[in-house]
């Protein structure tokens, strides 16, 4: 189902103009759209958690709940042809790039209707059409790969930018620093987005890194960086516009450290012994990105009925995705042997 739409390849484009940096709050309709996109991720992930509990999703399943403002805010800064790449906590990124919920959910259940025909699973989905380049399971590997996507933009001189996401845990990997050097050296259009959710699996950043401010990690190469409230979609979008404009102007890479939080465990099997229930509760109550957006919308004149429509719409999409993910058949056994090599032309 997904395949037909994926046939397009990256086309050459003229150099895109950098949009003027918007210093004001989001226009109401864009904030409403952001609210909807975040809510879709939240409800999708909740449903994925349920399906996992029912045994319909296997293996690893890393939920994005709590971090929604990061991808949604950043995605608002992109133009057609820009790329996104991330780690294995990737469902939110897929939905934010516009990949269909049903195709993602069906991949989680390992069905033929999934984006990878059931052969990738939670951690490995891709969509050329939407500019989503995975979905990578080796911590930190996507940072070099994203640097390469940006290299291709430079090579093609297409004015596009690559958003490369990783956690503060991955930021300790050596290839991340190799990538910083390469990106700065070649002035590659890549925004490095460190989603600092405080814990690399069960190890807090304080216990894993001597660096306390990851936005400064690019300092040796003069890569500008800033810390951003990753729980505030408007703040994310503003910082994102600055970073993306910097890249589009040919000034090289930019680092954004998103201070965020995941409400759920690292994966489904997380014992959650490394932090208190109160800590999680406090974040949910005081900093929830979706609740914050909802309050702002209402303050700025949005009526409850409109939000209810959005909520219902999202609920319907997720329910439909869950149904599809259970009704789509498992891949044909012949699929075991396909897609190992591209057949020579």
């Amino acid at each position: 189902m997904v395949k037909g739409a994926e046939a397009g390849t990256t086309k050459r484009r003229g150099r895109a103009k950098a949009p003027p940096a918007d210093s004001s709050a989001l226009p109401q309709e864009r904030l409403l759209q952001a609210y909807r996109d975040m809510l879709l991720i939240r409800r999708f992930e909740e449903k994925a958690g349920q399906l996992y509990g029912m045994g319909l999703i296997g293996g690893f399943c890393h939920l994005y709940i709590g971090q929604e403002a990061v991808v949604v805010g950043m995605q608002m800064c992109l133009q057609p042809g820009d790329q996104v790449i991330t780690s294995y906590r990737d469902h939110g990124h897929m939905l934010a790039t516009g990949m269909e919920a049903r195709g993602v959910m069906a991949e989680l259940t390992g069905r033929e209707g999934g984006y990878s025909k059931g052969k990738g699973g939670s951690m490995h989905m891709f969509s050329r059409e939407k500019g989503f380049f995975g979905g990578h399971g080796i911590v930190g590997a996507q940072v070099s790969l994203g640097t390469g996507l940006a290299f291709a933009n430079m090579y093609r001189d297409n004015g596009n930018v690559c958003l490369t996401y990783y956690g503060e845990g991955a930021a300790n990997q050596g290839q991340v620093y190799e990538s910083y050097n390469l990106a700065a050296l070649f002035k590659l259009p890549v925004v490095y987005i460190i989603e600092n959710n405080r814990y690399g699996m069960g190890t807090s950043m304080e216990r894993a890194s001597a660096s306390k401010d990851r936005s400064k990690d690019g300092a040796p190469w003069n890569i500008p960086g800033e810390q951003v409230d990753g729980m505030d979609v408007e703040a994310v979008r503003l910082a994102g516009e600055r970073a993306v404009a910097h890249c589009r102007e040919g000034k090289g890479p930019y680092i954004l450290e998103m201070l965020t939080y995941r409400y759920r465990g690292h994966s489904m099997s997380d014992p959650a012994k490394y932090r208190t229930r109160e800590e999680v509760q406090k974040m949910r109550e005081q900093h929830d990105p979706i609740e914050t957006a909802r309050k702002r919308l209402l303050e700025r004149g949005q009526d409850e009925a409109g939000l209810k429509t959005v909520d219902d719409d999202v609920k319907r999409i997720v329910a439909e995705a869950a149904d599809f993910a259970q009704s789509s058949p498992e891949p044909d056994e012949s699929e075991l042997w396909t897609d190992i090599l591209v057949e020579a032309r």
């Binding site: 940072v143 070099s144 790969l145 390469g148 291709a152 990538s179």
Partner: peptide
């Protein structure tokens, strides 16, 4: 542009090349 000297950084430049290949280069 087409004959590119890299620093001594195999892990990084290999990943970078693979990423570029994903786009069809």
């Amino acid at each position: 542009k087409r004959v590119v000297d890299t620093p001594i950084t195999e892990h990084g430049f290999t990943g970078m090349a693979v990423g570029a290949a994903f786009t069809g280069l």
